[in-house]
Design a protein around this nucleic acid. Structure first.
Lengths: 132, 132
DNA sequence: GTTCGTGCAAACGGTTTGCAACAAT
DNA sequence: ATTGTTGCAAACCGTTTGCACGAAC
């Protein structure tokens, strides 16, 4: 899409077909994909895409603030394009990660932790998604 | 120590020299060591110790509820023997993880997240430790 | 023509597994 | 005898790196 091309140009990245395929997928999904999931999905749009380019592109998107790597799952980094502050709920049955809007939870008491200069924080919840 | 031997027996683990060395270190430290750090330290007490046994022992200590693996750092699992509920602060300068007592923070609003059955949660904070 | 981006394959680091030897029950 | 535990080495998996080719400026 024209928008994506402009977006990449704005942040100083050449809009190659590979980067477009990666960005198109990772910026649109809310599924918190791993690098390998991005690779599988984006390769459908751009079959020549290699793993190295996926890792490379995700690193640059992250540097440019378009995506945030999250280390909340065992063994893998997942990528989150929802850039506003928010919390996470991890469904232990399925491994699915859900975004929880910032305003849904209030954390109080951090002001009293004087030994720490808190740059960011989030609540990480684990459990089951309700069936109903 | 006699206590450690009884403890391992109580949870149904044979108190071998290797397990004693691993348990003695990981249950006493508050430094959130990685498996490899446990290996290095415990090997001083028990030079025949292998990496496989460290991973094996940590997995069992975890099953038995004596230790909790935490996935809050990039690329590694760290082990926490502080089993009461608590939060974590990660010093981004040093990579050090600090335990934050449960009562120091209050999280409210979780009751309203009706789609989720929350089994556990913690606040994960990142920043710098204050110099003063 | 110099820089940037790519694919490939090899390397890497943390973790798991298969297996044969051995100790405990 | 059966089961549990160990060390070793190989396998594994996610990620990074080196490099030579090609495209963009």
């Amino acid at each position: 899409m024209r928008n994506l091309i402009s977006l990449l140009r704005e942040v100083g990245l050449q809009p190659t077909p590979q980067r477009l395929a990666v960005a198109q997928y990772v910026l649109a999904t809310t599924s918190h994909p791993t690098a390998d999931e991005v690779f599988e999905k984006a390769r459908k749009k751009c079959p020549t895409l290699s793993r190295a380019t996926v890792y490379n592109t995700l690193a640059r998107l992250s540097e440019k603030g378009l995506v945030r790597p999250q280390t909340i799952m065992e063994g893998v980094v997942v990528f989150d394009a929802y850039m506003e502050k928010h919390h996470h709920f991890i469904d232990e049955d399925t491994g699915t990660i859900h975004d929880v809007p910032w305003g849904d939870l209030v954390v109080s008491g951090a002001e009293n932790l004087r030994e720490y200069e808190i740059r960011e924080y989030q609540v990480v919840m684990r459990g089951r998604r309700r069936s109903g």
